[in-house]
Amino acid sequence: MNLKRILIVTAGILFLSLGVQAQRYITKSGKITFYSDGPLEKIEAVNNKVNAALDSQNGMFVFKVLMKSFVFEKALMQEHFNENYVESDKYPVATFKGKVSNINEVDCATPGTYKVDVSGQLSIHGQTHPVQTTGTFTVYEGGVKGNSQFTIKLADYDIEIPSIVAGKIAEEILITVNIDLKPLKK
């Protein structure tokens, strides 16, 4: 009897996860910029090669970012970023594994702008921390455009600011995400 109940629940969950034909959206040219404004140095970088994917059925939302693809205003900053701050040789990739919690409010068949709540785990520099933010999905004929902004603390990701510039470089970084997701063709 109890075993039966467990079996039914298990089967139900498996059915739900496998049985539904998911509509997936993907991009490999998403844009992430980060910006920090400290008294000494204003730091800004752009990455136009961001991987992002969304499952509009269950709201799963993931990002994969190559750290070496960030382009800085000054080449020297880029070198320092990779070499001294995020240590790209050791940790080449940043990922976000999350979920759009109100995906059921987004109708991917009807063009329009929807407010979305996104939460998940962000991994940078080998450190993983939860991130929660809001953003918008703009559904249009060709796909879904996503926008969001949030801040992270360098300390959360074990990114050290050297003592000689401590207090002169901002400890919080503003991250802006702009992606244009296209339906994945099967």
């Binding site: 939302f61 993931v62 594994k97």
Partner: peptide, 18 residues
């Protein structure tokens, strides 16, 4: 199972990337 389902679904999405 739900946790498993979430991580499987996310890894599944991750695998879409080259």
């Amino acid at each position: 199972l739900s946790v498993l389902q979430v991580t499987v679904a996310q890894d599944d999405l991750m695998n879409l990337f080259d």
